[in-house]
């Protein structure tokens, strides 16, 4: 599915990091534009019509989260956030604001490219193209008929589990925060009950994972949320 080379904007104030991110992305066939501040980043994203933004959270002239919020008012292109290890709150805030994935510094080329590929893949697949059938591992979900099978056997999911699975599948490869899940599956009234998500996620894992303690599809991002991998 190689089309015209995707445009990626890298917003990062460290020239060295910007350079290697650029090299990696270009090796993948992307067209890269750089920005070293929130202001430059906004100008670039507005003018270049990018397919993706790679954004450092700690920028000299402001917070990357503001940029994400701004961007989300007019675009839904994937955003990958670069962040330090200890700042879980910043990551959650960025993800809640609309970022799709994050990378912890220091990261290697391989990790970066894997995430970028996943997000680009999701973008090409996204609007309307999603079939109503989803297959992963031993599981086969038919969203239009609301049935789930495991090894060909029907699997009973409760209504909430079903909604949860549908939402996860719709946002596969993205990191979803507890808050996002609560808001979209339970409704806006439940955004503080994070343990609900955890309990239902555990149920869902028991039903669709081979080994719930070593999950392969519903992955936990400690302190942040979940990532669904097909």
């Amino acid at each position: 599915m190689k089309e015209a080379s995707p445009i990626v904007i890298v917003v990062e104030d460290e020239a060295k990091i910007r350079r290697f991110v650029r090299m990696s992305l270009e090796s993948e066939g992307c067209q890269v534009y750089e920005a070293d501040s929130v202001k430059r980043g906004l100008i670039e994203t507005a003018t270049r019509k990018p397919d993706m933004v790679v954004l450092d959270l700690g920028l000299p002239d402001g917070d990357g989260v503001g940029l994400i919020r701004d961007l989300r008012t007019w675009s839904d292109i994937p955003v990958i956030v670069l962040s330090a290890r200890t700042s879980e709150m910043d990551k959650v805030e960025a993800l809640d604001a609309g970022a799709d994935d994050y990378l912890i510094k220091p990261f290697g080329t391989a990790e970066l490219l894997a995430r970028v590929r996943a997000q680009l893949r999701r973008r090409t697949r996204a609007p309307g193209s999603a079939t109503s059938i989803l297959e992963f591992g031993k599981i086969r979900v038919d969203f239009s008929r609301r049935t789930v099978e495991r090894d060909g056997e029907p699997l009973h999911l409760t209504p909430i589990e079903h909604r949860l699975l549908a939402y996860l599948a719709n946002n596969a490869d993205s990191v979803l925060t507890h808050r996002q899940l609560l808001k979209n599956v339970w409704g806006p009234g439940h955004v503080e009950d994070a343990h609900y998500v955890r309990v239902y996620m555990a149920h869902l894992r028991k039903k669709i994972e081979d080994d719930p303690s070593q999950p392969r599809h519903i992955l936990t991002e400690a302190g942040i949320g979940y990532r669904f991998v097909i």
Binding site: E14, K16, S24, P106, T109
Partner: peptide, 14 residues
């Protein structure tokens, strides 16, 4: 401390 480390990892990879 981390910024140069991040650059180093990335540059070694590149």
């Amino acid at each position: 401390l981390r910024t140069p480390l991040s650059a180093l990892v990335g540059l070694a990879d590149s």
